[in-house]
Amino acid sequence: MARMNLQKSAPEIYQAWIDAELAIRRGPLDATVRELVKLRVSQINGCLFCIDMHATEARKEGETERRVWHLNAWRESALFTEAERAALEYAEAATTLGPHGVSDEIWAAVEKHFDEGQRAGLVAVTAQINLWNRIGVPMRLEPPEH
């Protein structure tokens, strides 16, 4: 059971997060890349609510079951494009933020595959899903029954 309903407890703040989410969705980043990043970051952070939501959203955007299954081991899978790999590498580095943050090599791959607006979208979606995960995990959000 969830510890708190932030939508009810802090409606203005929650609405600001929703507005940011909607702006990201309207942005130039490809919907498939957006949902793959959300799903992969949620896997890293262990947010069951977001894993469930974004696996469902990815499939609605046309993602295949097989690619969803492979996502946790995307480096070993031949099913992802170079652009998707660059986005996933960036998302993982920005999520885990080791002692050196996001390396120049990782960022160069992002620059190679995405224009400036798409890069901004990638940065934004990665930050935003980390925010949602940091709400979902401590609040113990559970996915709805499908």
Rank of each mutant, 00 (worst) to 15 (best):
A94Y: 04
L22Y: 10
R40C: 01
E21D: 15
E116Q: 14
E65A: 15
R67W: 00
A109L: 13
R66T: 09
T95D: 03
D115Q: 11
V68L: 15
M1L: 12
C47A: 12
M53W: 06
A55R: 10
G27E: 05
T64F: 02
M4V: 14
R140E: 15
R75K: 13
E92G: 01
H146M: 12
A2H: 10
K38H: 14
Q7H: 13
A16I: 09
L71M: 09
N72D: 14
V102P: 03
A23W: 06
G62T: 04
K112G: 11
T64G: 06
I135Y: 07
Q43C: 03
R67Q: 08
V137N: 06
A83E: 08
Y90D: 00
L6C: 08
G136H: 02
Q15V: 05
L141A: 09
R66N: 09
R75I: 02
A10W: 07
L88E: 03
W17Y: 13
I24L: 06
L39V: 01
S42V: 05
V41W: 04
G101S: 01
K8M: 12
K8H: 13
S42I: 02
V68I: 15
L39H: 08
R134N: 04
M4G: 07
V102C: 02
A20P: 05
L22P: 04
W69I: 11
G46F: 01
E89N: 10
R140M: 12
F49N: 05
V102F: 00
H54W: 07
L79C: 04
W132T: 06
A20Y: 11
I106R: 05
P11W: 07
A91G: 02
S77Y: 02
